[in-house]
Amino acid sequence: MTVGLAPAEVLWRAMAVPRLLDCGMVPSDVAGLRAATDEGVPWDVACAQLAEAQFERADGTSVTAVEALRAGAADLLFAQMAHNFDTARKRELYAAFTAAVGRAGALAGWERVQLPFAGGYLVGWIVRPAAPRGTVILFGGQSGWGAAYLRLADALVARGLTAFLVEGPGQGEPRLASGLYLDVDVRAAYSTFVDHVLARPDLPGPVGLWGNSMGGLYAGTTAASDRRVTAVCINGAPAQPRLLGMRTFDDQAAAMLGTTEPDAIQRNFDRLALRPGDRIESALLVLHGGADPIVSLADQQPFLDAADPDRSTLRIWVDGEHVVTNHAEERNAFVTDWFCERFQR
């Protein structure tokens, strides 16, 4: 496990174009990042420069400002991803990302939520339609968190569902600012978000979970422990995680736990895994990309085995990359329609 900025081509593999677009980077900034890194500009510097250019546009109308702030926030999201470990530079970039989201949220009417947990805190953004009829708690895994999923929130809100974009233990601000690592009760942490939704009369309707990458594991295990969850989508997650011998994945796993000791990381993965006795009583949707180099269909099969076959759905994109970023629009439409149907039932 290595601390330091990886070469540009390694970062381009870890953060390929479909992923950049999926998490909100605009096409012109993708092209600008390619040109800058080809000229030798460090990845994080290039992303930060692109963000500053977007922020210069944010003094127009409120609509233009929100668009520019979202684009700049996405640039900063990927700037901090260049640093797997919690360096001062990563903290600086993530704080700038959070501030940009806060500025956009103040204009767009998003609500920031901060919840105490295990000596630290959890955070999230609530993005609401005019007349909500259910809430989906949406989260990522090892490197993309919270407002990284604003495009998915757009799809939910367009269909009348509230999106709760959250950051859990070992992720984003809870880790970088409050010192909350992945050694706590993760199922209880995500149930804390469920508690919050169900305690609020302004967030009516059923509650669903949508977990992406390793976040899909947290979604599946939380649904297995919390019967209040009506529907859960697992997108590209291993039921029994392990170190993969891939620098980015293994370094990020170390950062989430706060140790570089491989045995300690694997023991924690074993603790987080779907257990033999777990049952997922809620409706279940598993998404799989046939070209995913990280998670195989066999890695996801235990989730399906733990669910009622009559209430579970498997959707495969044969050429799908990890978490199906290369079919993002179709993926988002399919999943959000699925939540709407399950909530109506």
Rank of each mutant, 00 (worst) to 15 (best):
L5N: 01
G144E: 09
D270R: 14
Y181R: 14
L33C: 01
V113E: 12
V197A: 04
A177K: 07
R342C: 11
P174E: 02
E111F: 13
A118D: 07
Y218F: 15
V207Y: 12
R271V: 13
E329P: 02
N84I: 02
V323I: 11
L182G: 12
L150V: 14
L257Q: 00
A14R: 11
L243W: 01
G4I: 11
F55N: 00
T61M: 07
R70H: 02
E92H: 10
V157M: 05
P238T: 04
F249H: 04
V127H: 07
E92F: 02
F97S: 04
T230M: 10
S213Y: 00
R19Q: 13
M256G: 08
F55G: 06
E92I: 05
E167T: 07
Q240H: 13
A306H: 09
A131N: 05
E67W: 02
T37N: 03
P116W: 10
P206K: 10
L5T: 06
D250H: 05
W125K: 08
G245W: 03
S178H: 02
G277Q: 05
L257S: 01
A298N: 10
I234Y: 05
T135V: 00
E92G: 07
V295A: 00
V197P: 03
Q252K: 15
L20M: 01
V26L: 15
N212I: 13
G290E: 12
R151I: 04
T61V: 09
A6W: 14
G144F: 10
G289T: 14
T87W: 10
G146Y: 09
L76H: 06
L243C: 00
A71G: 01
G245E: 03
R271A: 15
L180N: 08
G258F: 03
E9M: 14
F343Q: 10
A333V: 02
A291Y: 06
G146V: 11
V229T: 09
R345K: 03
V286E: 08
W145V: 09
G179H: 08
W43Q: 13
F339K: 09
D250W: 10
A298C: 09
Y218I: 04
G216P: 13
F55Q: 04
P302W: 00
V186A: 03
R331T: 04
L11N: 03
A306K: 01
V17C: 04
D202F: 04
D337Q: 14
W338T: 01
G179K: 13
A99E: 15
V324P: 08
P293H: 03
G160A: 02
N326A: 04
V101M: 10
P42L: 09
S62I: 05
R19W: 06
L5W: 02
G172S: 07
V3D: 06
T325H: 14
V186I: 10
P238L: 09
A36T: 08
S28P: 02
G170E: 03
V194L: 13
